[in-house]
Each structure stands twice: as C-alpha cells, then as structure tokens.
Nucleic acid binder design. Sequence first.
DNA 1: CGTATGCGGAGATATTCCCTCCGCTTATGA
DNA 2: TCATAAGCGGAGGGAATATCTCCGCATACG
Lengths: 241, 241
Amino acid sequence: MTRLLTVMEDLGCPIEEGEVQVERTLRKDAEENRERILKAAKVLFAERGLGVTLDDVAHSAGLGVGTVYRRFPNKDALVEALFEQRVIELINVAKAALEFSDGWEGFLYLLANMLTLETEDRGLRDVILGSEYIKGRLRDLKAEVAPLIESLVAKAQEQGTLRPDFRANDVPVLTAMAGAAQEYCGVASPGIWKRYVAIVLDGLKANRSSLTHMPEEALNHEQLHQATLNWKSRRLSDGRR
Amino acid sequence: MTRLLTVMEDLGCPIEEGEVQVERTLRKDAEENRERILKAAKVLFAERGLGVTLDDVAHSAGLGVGTVYRRFPNKDALVEALFEQRVIELINVAKAALEFSDGWEGFLYLLANMLTLETEDRGLRDVILGSEYIKGRLRDLKAEVAPLIESLVAKAQEQGTLRPDFRANDVPVLTAMAGAAQEYCGVASPGIWKRYVAIVLDGLKANRSSLTHMPEEALNHEQLHQATLNWKSRRLSDGRR
DNA sequence: CGTATGCGGAGATATTCCCTCCGCTTATGA
DNA sequence: TCATAAGCGGAGGGAATATCTCCGCATACG
C-alpha cells in the first residue's frame, strides 16, 4: 500500500485525503503521540477556543511542533478530528429535545444542554458560531443542527408556550450572548452564565406566572473588578490594505 | 514655562501630567491636527474599540504617526481625551433614570439609553467593561456609575417591578451580552441587539402580562451565514511563559 | 527672516503565528 | 541482529502586527 501510494505520488498524482483511504497503520509510538496530541488539544481548545496554535498544542502535549504538524497538516484537520463527535452530540441533544411531547419542555431541554456544551467548550462555541477551520464533514454535520431547531421552535410556538416572535436563527445569537457572559465572568465565577440564561428563558416563555430561580449569585464587586481586568478589546480587521 | 520645564527635566525631575499644568498653546496648524486626530480616533474607536493602533488613527487622520505620538504620548492619553465626556453622558443617563418616580420606568430608561450608548460605541463598551488604557480621571468618573445603578435597582425592587434576584452588578454583564449580540449580528443587521434586549427585559420584569414588542427581525439564513464568516475566536493569553 | 515648533514616516524592537527542514533516534520485521 | 523506514525535536525562516523613536525637512510666527 505504502509502496503504491509513493509510486502514485512520484507519478505526479497527489493523494487526496478521502479519495483514496490512506489507512497505513502508524508505528506504535506514533499512534501514542497522536493520542497525546488529541488529548492536549481537546483541553486547550475547550479552554481557549480555536485560536490556539498547533505550537501550543505541541508544547502542551510535551512533543515537538514537527510531530504535531506531521500528524495534522494544519489546524483544520485537528479541528475536524476533535469536533465531529461533539457536533454529533449537539445533533443528538436536538433530536432528544424533539421527543418531548411538551414543546416548551423540549425547548428548555435543548437550550439547557446545548448551551452547556457550547458554553463550557470555547472550541465548540467557535465551531458553531464561526466558520474558520470548519470544512468538509464537519461543516456538513454542523448544517444538520439548524433544521432540528427549527422544528422544535415551530412545535413550541404551535403549542403556545414559546413567544411567537422568537426565531430559530435567534438560537446562535443566544449562544453568543451566553458565551459572552461566560467569558466576561468566567474567571471569577464559572457557571454564572446560567444566571443570565435564566433571565433570558423567563423572557422567552409566552406566559409566565413565576420567575425561574437564578442558579448562581451575581458577581460581587471584587469579582466584577477581576472580570474587568480580564476584558480585552478584540482587534477587528480594518479593511484597509 | 517651557524653559522651566526643560530645566526641570534636565535636572532629572520628570514632569508628570497633572502635577504641573502644561498649557502651552499649540501652533495653529498643530492645533488643527490635534482636532483631526481626535475626530478620526472617535470614529475608529467607536467602530473597532480600544484595540485600534495610534498608527491606525494617524493614517485615518491623514497624518504621520509621529504627529500623533507627539500630541498623545500613548493610547491612555487619547482614550482619556475622548471618553471622559462619554462617561459623563452615562452618569447623566443614570441620574436622569433616578428622576422617574416609577422605578421600572427608570430602569427601562437606564438600560435603553446606556445600552444604546455602549452598544453603538465599541470603545465606550471597552471603557466600561475593561480596564486597559483607563487611568486617572477617566477611572474615577467610571466609578461614579455603579452606585447610581445600585440605587436605581434598589428602588425598582422596592416597588416590586424589577425581579428581586437581579443585582446592580448584573448590568455590566448585560452590556457584555448585548455587545456580543451586536458584534455577532452587527455586520448583517445593526440595531438587532435591541431584539435581544427586549427578550432580556421581559425576563427582568417581576410580573408581566404582555410581551415587549421585538423591534427587529431575526437574521435570515444569509445574514446568519455572514455573521458566521465574521466570527473570530479571540486569542486568550495562555499563562505560560 | 531666524528659529522654535511641528511634521512625516522609515525603521528599530518586540511579539506572535505558521510551518519546514534536517540531523538524530527508534520501532519493526526480514 | 541489524538495516532502514518511520518518527522525533525544535531551531529558525518568513510573514504579520504593534509600539514608539528619531531625524532631516517644513512652516508658523514674532
């Protein structure tokens, strides 16, 4: 197999991942290192989002940069390897949410679980909200989520429990908002994002008599100060060249 | 005066801004350029936040970098010159909000106006949410806002119109969230942040019978796609050194 | 018209990121 | 056992990006 591939390449026939299934088994140590890379990357991406460098990953895995680049030619490949499964989790959450006979219950289930996944993993949030590094299979998987949410929203609205002017496309924006709350306060109080989701949920219910219990305390002054220190203005591209 | 200052510096006595009031009048052209810098910076900071470079500002003002650095020794100085007035506006909004006899009306007034100011000016948002570049007078002014909000929240809660588990310290987080909505969707639909603030307000009212009208349409798929392209994972510091 | 003041922007310095290259090491199977 | 394909580390090249200085030249103004 290896022989054949090499020959094909020598003939100027580049081997495209996916066209020919390159399944050459790795040497034992190489396979181990691949696992270490994935493990380190999982943690780093979850903590700091898709912005992490392959250099960071290498360092964190206790390996040289070269090793990482040999196994994953670029960040896209690593991202795909790591997040396919996680996006499938999202799809499953949405499917499970559709199982509820009560549309509001389902919607609640969706938001609670989806936001938990996406808020606690910055990388997953980047995958859902952005498009950088997201190609091929991962992109396709991601596209499966929206229609499910649309059904769910429609159902809850038909039953009159979700406010009628809400739209499925608002969901990613809620994700961005919960993410912002998390990034702002997370240093001082991880999990506080639930407090703000509680507020939003009370704003989404078509009719409500009681208030949802807010599951976390607000930041105290010291914590807010900490958040303040942590805030960085994101550099925006400026268009000129 | 200039003479004196120079001598003092020659003697190794650094001149601190604010200790000695340096009020030497600028040459006419220099004064003009100073205005151009402020004008350009105002626009850039509003659009892209405190992350803009003094080089950016210079270029946008049609001046050389040196000119900008001569007039404003660093970004702190420029930020202070630009945002003092804007923070005073915030203070005035909060004071005006306290004038309402109806606490909820006042709270509504506060959020509507404060969030408008802070959402439409990324720089102001950075000033409020962050601490980078914020020193001296600007810092002091900023500190005047929180107590006003505290009174306002207390008042509305005493009157039973604002949910009792809300805290004044939640306000900056709401700012961060509205800002996130704006940054995510702003390219496709500026002003859409009001849609999400409407939801949040409905979640903050202690009792509500009707829903607040959502002032903007949700993004359509094309717009959402645009938002997706615009999303960048903020690079977080990684702690190692 | 002399000179203090101001101007432009190249470039020094520092940081960050992406990725390649190459000398050395190691797993593997003939 | 040992030849060798496969793998490894990490220095370093190259490209951006940001901050701030320096100095030869221009100009406002008394």
